[in-house]
Design a protein around this nucleic acid. Structure first.
Lengths: 336, 336
DNA sequence: CCCGTTTTCCGAAACGTTTCGGATAACCTT
DNA sequence: AAGGTTATCCGAAACGTTTCGGAAAACGGG
């Protein structure tokens, strides 16, 4: 490994000068700087990040904490799209991304905070975590700058980015109402996800606009899984046979609901209309193609990285970003 | 930040002893060790990786170089599933994963090798790169241990993991042949991807078994994209109207081919049968559900991480791993 | 009780970089 | 020519850890 010292020797200057020359300080003669640069180039020098960050206390790396990057989670590639956006922006700004794999059992031993300071990431992006996660508070209240995805928390060092979930749900449900549906079941996620409560709020608002009272028994949790949603949809349709439409809080769950509806021998959208949320890729290909609300996942990641880096570099910036959503009309809804 | 020094002071021992106690050396009294551990715990100590790796020259991080983690690539989540596997295994073995975003323009400035040594990763996994990539040779011939995904190169410090592409293709095409198809078009990727040549080889072998001569004009490149495949399928079907089946080298391309077939007003599988490759999620949901060959993406990532770490830790291990593939029969093929 | 061995500890150097405080020399200004 | 600036450079300390060589103390065997 070629070090700054080797360059110094070759150039006949001190290591100090080499360091300052390479880092663009202005108290070094342009000729010497050029000579040093040439030698560095010739020797194939590249700075040692460990040494550098040992003293600067900066690592130029962002941690990504996502609790569910595991075998199961790959079907909806939402996480992946977000990751792509993050990675792109981080790359542009010369940061690297390190993935923290957090399995429940490892979490017992090492908290996020420990993980972060051990690895020495400058900041961290957290997603896919439950609101009641014991360690969420910890990292948020710690000194580590962090931005949350879909978790509305703010602080001096923490911000978040999310989609306009209530708006999206509002538009989706309004669309159903305008199509004449009046008894709309909702397949929800679980109470410990902010998106669940926000999207339900949108549902209620749409109902309100049409003067329809909210009926608690029309909503059922599907735990964000395909199987869970299938189960939930079965129960919903069994208990309330006059339901004509299902609003599913996520596309994956809409897929599960679709199975349940078919399992009951009912047609989509002929007898039951379905709308989802997220606009994952499958929705365009499945049959019937799913009407859903799009959220800009790539952008979420991109902006999250941007916000975190802004935070890190001390820029004054809003700690809250809500991205627009858009209703994507396809084939799973018919008028009633 | 609490350092080893603070612990030493609090425990009334030297930093050497603290270090050795914490790292499990046996020349420290069990009582002192316990005391030191307690104090470390109490102070919330966590070791500084930068300092540690400065001297040990190990970082316990794996680099992941994938050239196409960008906006477009998210539709087929193959990369993501592989990543999940890698991340899981790396995590189990106490390594972290850092993503290297390589855009074509950045590649000009910094070669992979530079990237790796700057970031000080112990080794690197490379995927999604073309065989003719200028820097591929560089990193492979460098000292950096690396494992390739779907690129058959071996060396003292390099290994690879891939699927049984020829076997998979062989079974897929045999299935078509057994169903009575004789004129089978193939939508290929491009010549600079090993999977393209392997899967084509499987196609040829199947043909051979049935005594059918290989016809060059039956294969057309679709550049691994949906649009490219659509175009290719159009051309194929126009030029050879008696084609009765399409073997697509990837599912994403099969989706494109499906569009082309429909665009020509033909039925799948009634008039044209289609089989894909990869078994991405959409294939189970699209209509008709796609017959395809599954490759175990998660396992590929898992094993790649395992192999790299074996390499890093000097274990004697095979530098080559070929995972089984499996034909998944669904609805896109009918007998002729 | 002496000598060799084991146990337990420590001082200091090293890793590659940045940075603080200063030093030298050349250049102005009056 | 003296004093003040400026341009350019350097020595040494510091960051937090590991590790080499050795040292002190306790122990065991004869």
């Amino acid at each position: 490994m070629v070090t700054i010292k080797d360059i110094a020797k070759a150039a006949g200057v001190s290591v100090t000068t080499v360091s300052r020359a390479l880092n663009g300080y202005d108290d070094v003669n342009e000729d010497t700087r050029q000579k040093i640069k040439d030698i560095a180039q010739g020797l194939g020098y590249s700075p040692n990040m460990a040494a550098r960050s040992l003293i600067s206390k900066k690592t130029k790396t962002l941690g990504l904490l996502l609790s569910n990057v595991t075998r199961a989670s790959s079907k909806d590639n939402i996480a992946f799209e977000i990751l792509c956006g993050m990675n792109d922006r981080a790359g542009e700004l010369d940061y690297d991304l390190v993935l923290f794999s957090t399995t429940p059992q490892k979490q017992k031993i090492k908290s996020y905070k420990t993980l972060c300071q051990e690895r020495g990431v400058d900041g961290v992006i957290i997603m896919g975590i439950r609101l009641d996660d014991a360690y969420l508070k910890e990292v948020v209240s710690s000194q580590i700058p962090c931005v949350l995805i879909d978790i509305p928390l703010e602080g001096p060092n923490v911000g978040y980015v999310t989609s306009d979930n209530v708006g999206g749900a509002y538009r989706a449900v309004s669309y159903l109402l305008e199509a004449g549906h009046r008894k709309i079941g909702v397949v929800n996620g679980h109470s410990q996800a902010d998106v669940s409560v926000q999207r339900l709020k949108g549902y209620k608002q749409a109902l309100e606009r049409f003067g329809i009272p909210f009926d608690e028994s029309l909503v059922m949790d599907g735990s964000f899984s395909e199987a869970g949603a299938k189960e939930a949809a079965y129960r919903l349709l069994a208990q309330q046979p006059d339901i004509t439409a299902l609003f599913c809080i996520s596309d994956l769950m809409a897929l599960g609901a679709l199975q349940a509806v078919r399992g009951l021998g009912l047609q989509v959208p002929g007898q039951i209309s379905v709308v989802g949320f997220d606009n994952i890729d499958v929705t365009a290909y499945c049959s019937p193609a799913l009407t859903t609300v799009n959220q800009n996942k790539y952008e979420m990641g991109y902006q999250a990285a941007q916000m975190l880096i802004d935070l890190l570099e001390g820029r004054k910036v809003s700690h809250r970003l809500v991205l627009d959503t858009e209703l994507i009309v396809r084939e799973s809804v018919s008028p009633r």
